[in-house]
Amino acid sequence: MSESTHVSSLGMGDGLHHQVLASFPLCDITEEDLTQNPQFCKLLATLAQHVDQTGLTVPLKTELEKAEQKLRSQRRHWLRSESLHKGLQEMIQDHCIRKHHVTVPPDQNLFYETLEKCLLVAQCIRLLDPSSTTNQDQPSVLGLSPQHMMDLMPSEKDVQRMKQGLPEELEKHLRKSCFSLLSYYQPEWENESERLKTSKLSHLAAQLDKEKKRAESLKETCRENTVLLQRQTQLYLSELIKCIQLLQSLILDHRLRIQTDLDGKKLEYLEGKCELVLQKIKTEMVEIQLDMYTVDSIAAHRKIRERLESDLKACQVEKHSVELKLASFEILGKEFEALAEEYCRLRQKIEMNNWALKEFTRCSDK
């Protein structure tokens, strides 16, 4: 049984491939990979029952959710304290700016000075107080202790007065900050009445949470579309490569099939061109001959040729007779060869003496 038949025997077929791809969206695998590796596809399908889309097991996912819930709780507690601290600091800064522009009542100045001193002392005490992870025996900063900082606190009376007026002032500041946030979120609400702003402000958290969930949903959809686009891109590129390979094979087959006809046509063309060139060369040669040789020169050349041919025949006859004589002389052997050489030497000597005698006679006549 083949592997594809084995996958079909599971009763899932293509549905198994889609289930695996949906269970592991972060994996860079395609349906073709699962088809070619059915055992691996079966392993992923079994594994999907024990892990989520991020690859975490069910127990680990539960522990992670508990840890995240605890972290969110601690984060809310920290944000509550940090927001309160930042709000108090903003109140002090606003007061410092306001007192440079308008006259502030003395009791309000005392309120903010007491608040600022209390914040500074609390901050110094937090810095001087070692945490649970710090060695308790380490020396303190500049020999200071939290008790030294407590001595710098304002009077108890001023502190109590500040604490009594703090909730109201803090509420005013937070209300102002919330109205600023509301105006930033919806600028057209800035000119609304305070009562209407307060009503809309009570629904602002729900609206922001709704938009946050919508943004997260859009982000998740965008991520899914990105994964889908990547898979479609891979599939498109794979199909495109197959089409290119098929096109290359078709082009190669077509080229090989018509190459013989192209070569035959090219050979015929070259043969015809060569024949044309040869005919042109012959034509040029005939034109040159017609320009060089007139009727009289051709007749003279014909007579010269006849005379040369007759002289050639006479020379050939003479050559033949000389060859016969030489052949008869060769019969006499080496002794005749020595006589022939001596004869040639004497003939040369006689010729030299005759030439010398002629020269001497010519000089004597002068």
Rank of each mutant, 00 (worst) to 15 (best):
D107E: 06
E156G: 15
Q147N: 14
L144V: 05
H100L: 10
Q123Y: 08
H101M: 05
H95D: 02
L142G: 12
D151I: 12
N135T: 03
R98M: 09
L144C: 08
M91Q: 03
S81A: 02
R126A: 03
D151T: 14
L115P: 00
P106K: 14
R126W: 01
P105D: 11
K86I: 08
R76E: 09
R76C: 03
C124R: 00
G87T: 11
S145W: 07
R75G: 11
L119E: 08
Q147S: 13
P130H: 04
S81E: 12
V141H: 15
Q93M: 05
D129F: 05
W78L: 02
R75N: 07
Q138H: 10
C124G: 11
L120E: 11
C118A: 09
L79W: 14
L120A: 13
G87Y: 01
H95T: 06
L79V: 04
M150A: 15
H85T: 04
S81K: 04
F111A: 01
E156V: 15
P154Q: 14
N109I: 11
Q74H: 08
T134F: 03
R76D: 06
V102G: 13
L88C: 09
L79A: 15
S83D: 11
M149P: 09
Q123T: 11
P105E: 09
Q89P: 00
R76F: 08
D107Y: 11
L128P: 00
P105H: 12
H95N: 06
W78N: 05
R98I: 05
G143M: 04
L88R: 15
C124M: 08
L144Q: 01
L144R: 02
W78R: 06
D137K: 07
F111Q: 00
P139G: 03
W78A: 09
V104L: 11
T103A: 02
A122N: 08
P146N: 08
P130V: 07
L84E: 07
S155P: 04
T133H: 13
L120K: 14
